[in-house]
Amino acid sequence: MWPRFLERWKGIALTLIGVVATLWLAFSGQLGLYIHPRYFLFTTIMAVIGGALAIVAMLLLPASGADEADHEHEHEGESEADASQRRRRPRGRRRALAGAWATVAILVGAGIALLALPPATLSAATAVQRDVERTTSDLANESPLLVGTDPSEFTFRDWALVVRQGGAAAELTTTDVSLVGFVMPAPDDPDDTFVLARFTITCCAVDAQPIGVPVHLPDWRERFSPDDWVDATGRFGADPAGGEGLVLLPTSLEVTDQPSEPYVY
């Protein structure tokens, strides 16, 4: 009996899980952990509508008595083939049972992922896996040249890109910079450089691309661990370790809280 009950209510149950999760994220200001801000309004409105539809459907759906009447009606028109199919009961029932357990797994999984676990940003481990070097230089190549524009207005993203766009223009190395990002190990994992990174997203967290600037700090692991959020102040300059390109030479580095909008756009 319960597989049929589940079959009937699983869509509404999943709707309610998704709606509660979405609306709670919206009201606690954390929707930005998952999707781009341009979807906030649309997502919130549709979640309210979806939730309202689900509740109304719960109240209006024919209850079990009416359901059985429906069912008899279905069999009225069934052909010989169907009837013989139904006679092979045990196999059909076993399959229905397996499907029902799969549904239970989906419901529990969705509940845990969306409701039980606290919301979180992507970790530095994913930034490493996604190859910050490559994604930053890809973006830098696609974006308009920033060299020559006024660096005092630069955002985190602008700094990350301008450093890759090459050219050690004087104004880049004479401007005081203050950047907030999370700590991730640099690609070859040197002891004297880490990457100060942020994720940039175009749609939702699944397309997040890490971008970052290299920061020169000998033995950085003694002060920070990956995923720490750090407020770095300093100027860009040639890499004292002899690497190519500009690195941030910090005058101060302080651990800070994760910003309310951890991604950059």
Partner: peptide, 9 residues
Amino acid sequence: ASVLIESLP
């Protein structure tokens, strides 16, 4: 979760 929340609306 991000794919799900993006798609749901």
